[in-house]
């Protein structure tokens, strides 16, 4: 099967093409965040403007013609409504023009499934860390096959927390990777640390950091932020690892690109003789390849959706999505 996937849930408009689980191309165009964060309508305009170009580039990179496609997938949610709409419209237009099947995909399932495949893990405990989400997941067969949420953030996703802080202290570009760079050589300052069982909270940490932002050195704040927030994630993950007796651990999502988080999780895994893995960074960042990857599985399971039944769902939880 030859399937295209379109991702548009947040700042990235991405298109990927997959054939029998193999990624042929993965092209993206990202809305550049400056001082204000993401204004959904502005971001969706960016997506509208670049949609045709990105789709064309993905086809060219894969070396195929549109009429060779057997199906198309799009991100149904979770994400920003206006942004999701653009991806869905692009998918519907192409499905209509080409007369091919269409598959709605849960964004989080996309990240998890592609990371799992690249890491060569079978049934891992998953730490999914992105802008809007931070969750500890494990496949459950209860009622239908899905990723059950064992633990998650009480308030904001860790990525949003990192991005917001980066903007607050005027780092450029204003997102998490700049915090990682700025953390080099920092010293530790005590910050709020909130873990409850397998759940955690980041809002108190962010408030305290903003309070301290005029008074303390930037590198100290960034260093302490990373050490505190990642320790919280590791503690909750370790608890889930022992509870589920999982032999595999996988990290995915935008914040999985952070090398400090990876090395801490590797420690946790080693302590319990657990295999640890993650996917390539191009799939940890938002991308269309992962949507194509999952869409192909959905279409193979015969679960396509009619053109008039396509919807977007801003708060589409991962545990609502059937996994094939």
């Amino acid at each position: 099967m030859l399937v295209m996937g379109i991702e548009s849930s947040a700042h990235t408009f991405g298109v990927g093409i997959v054939e029998e689980g193999r990624i042929l191309s993965n092209v993206k165009d990202m809305y550049q965040i400056k001082d204000k964060g993401m204004i959904p309508n502005k971001v969706s305009l960016h997506h509208l403007k670049c949609a045709d170009k990105v789709i064309k580039e993905a086809l060219e990179a894969a070396g195929i013609r549109p009429d060779q496609l057997d199906g198309i997938g799009y991100t149904m949610g979770p994400g920003l409504g206006p942004c999701l709409q653009v991806g869905m419209l692009s998918a519907k237009a192409m499905a209509h023009a080409l007369g091919i099947k269409i598959a709605p995909v849960n964004h989080a399932v996309g990240h998890v499934e592609i990371a799992r495949a690249y890491a060569g893990l079978d049934d891992p405990l998953v730490l999914y860390v992105s802008g809007g989400n931070s969750q500890i997941l494990k496949i459950s067969q209860d009622k239908f096959r899905h990723y059950a949420v064992l633990g998650e953030t009480f308030d904001m996703g860790i990525g949003n927390m990192l991005d917001t802080f980066a903007r607050e202290i005027k780092l450029l570009p204003a997102w998490g990777s700049s915090v990682e760079k700025a953390a080099a050589g920092g010293r530790y300052i005590e910050l709020p640390y909130t873990v409850k069982g397998m759940d955690f909270s980041f809002s108190g940490l962010l408030t305290r950091l903003i309070e301290l932002s005029g008074r303390e050195k930037r590198e100290d704040l960034c260093y302490s932020l990373q050490e505190t927030a990642f320790s919280m994630l590791c503690e909750a993950t370790e608890r889930a690892l022992l509870l589920t007796r999982s032999h595999e651990l996988c990290v995915c999502g935008g914040v999985a690109q952070n090398t400090r988080l990876r090395s801490m999780l590797a420690h946790v895994a080693a302590e319990h003789g657990t295999r640890f893995g993650f996917g390539p960074n191009e799939f940890n960042a938002d991308n269309g390849g992962m949507i194509a990857f999952v869409a192909e599985k959905i279409l193979k399971a015969g679960k396509s959706v009619g053109l008039n039944d396509c919807v977007v769902k801003q708060r589409y939880r991962i545990d609502e999505a059937e996994v094939f």
């Binding site: 530790y188 005590e190 050490e227 320790s231 590791c234 503690e235 801490m264 420690h267």
Partner: peptide
């Protein structure tokens, strides 16, 4: 816990 820095741990 080896994963976190001594001050936090």
């Amino acid at each position: 816990k080896a994963y976190r820095i001594a001050q936090i741990d």
